[in-house]
Nucleic acid binder design. Structure first.
Lengths: 220, 220
DNA sequence: CTGAAAATACTCCCTTTGGCGTATTTAACC
DNA sequence: GGTTAAATACGCCAAAGGGAGTATTTTCAG
């Protein structure tokens, strides 16, 4: 007889509408003495109601595609009331939108249902002691998202001259021709000329479009 | 005799300055027939030079803290020349800055040196077939980053009315009073009034400031 | 039903912007 | 040494924007 863990078992709740999956999980996870499956629910609504009368669990396994309220919305509400509860999404969905929305809602991990049972158990236990479990395919989506969020800066330069870049910044910050002219001690007409040049390079024709494009393309 | 993998072994390169770690990895990974450790390097510089004379590897294990050029910079250069090569960072650093910079540089995975050898091997092989390997502690940092990047949206509403929000969007998209008026079949003077109201609520007084603030505060 | 907020509309006045042209000086690159 | 691009500057004009005031109608919650 071994004593791999002296601490109390992990109180876990499963929210999953498909009976076979739900019961399968309950059984599989229950086999490990370090896990205690407190209860299971088919719907977010009933789960959230029951939270008042139930001792707060350590961890929740949450499906996304549920009848009624979505699991993502469930996470949002749950985390607002109990920020300390660890929530792991367990779903078949692997599209970037749902992944990001889940994370923004407060999820602490995102695993796909294709995860093998032994890995799943390991990941659940690791979520408490280590960090956030993510299926590799999910992680890939997230990395892609980070990559093309911070990048487009140097791809698009639009061939602006140094002076034009300075002035571009000022325009975005809301200065008028005159104010910018004063900053650099040049004539307002010159500033205007620069700005018109920039407009041509960026293919815009008003302050609003200009500022929008400059910010979106991370020129500032 | 079993045939778990018919495909050719994974050509792998290790860039790591500490001799023990480097040789340890080479030995450990080399034990698995699915992996072929082509070469190892102590520095990014020599690695990058050698790339011209070497067949392109499938995967590179890259350390960050190296003498001379940092591993992150190495990834940037490598990925620019060989986008198809899979790069996994293997380091002791787990700060958000280095993690994000690595990903933006093009890394396909980020593992900590505390990763157990068997897991490491599994993750490396999975990087080709599955997705991006991330240590749970690294994933945790990334999730935190995503969480507080997408949040401030609904905190600031500025008490805009529905109509004002519609018009706000149009202004950001570069439409003039007249154009917006036409869109909703109302008078340009009304549009102007709405916009002036919005200016007061957002505390701005020009198109440029308006657009900047609206985008930055994610009102659009 | 009543009152507040929102949406509508107009006027006057001045400033700013956008588009056009022209022209000189400086700097950089063959 | 000559060409090119950048930065400087001015003028003209029509369109758009910004500030302030007033007023009517709709809508919605108390």
């Amino acid at each position: 007889m071994t004593f791999p863990s002296v601490s109390k078992p992990l109180d876990l709740i499963i929210v999953e509408d498909q009976k076979e999956v739900r019961e399968g999980l309950r059984y599989l996870l229950g086999l490990d003495p370090r896990v205690n499956v407190v209860r299971t629910f088919e719907r977010v609504e009933t789960f959230l109601e029951a939270l008042d009368t139930l001792p707060t669990p350590d961890l929740v396994l949450m499906d996304i595609g549920l009848p009624g309220m979505s699991g993502i919305e469930g996470v949002r509400i749950l985390k607002k009331r109990f920020p300390a509860v660890i929530v792991i999404i367990l779903t078949v969905f692997e599209d970037t939108d749902r992944i990001l929305e889940s994370i923004r809602a407060g999820a602490n991990g995102y695993l796909l249902k294709s995860t093998k049972p032994d890995i799943l158990l390991e990941q659940i236990l690791g979520a408490v002691s280590e960090g956030s479990p993510l299926s590799p395919r999910v992680a890939k989506r997230i990395l892609e998202e980070i990559q093309d969020s911070g990048e487009p800066s140097e791809l698009s330069d639009y061939g602006l001259t140094p002076r034009e870049r300075q002035i571009l910044t000022d325009v975005v910050n809301g200065f008028t021709y005159r104010e910018i002219a004063a900053r650099y001690s040049i004539a307002a007409s010159t500033v205007k000329k620069h700005i018109l040049h920039i407009y041509q390079k960026l293919d815009v024709n008003s302050r609003a479009e200009f500022v929008k494009k400059a910010i979106r393309e991370k020129l500032v």
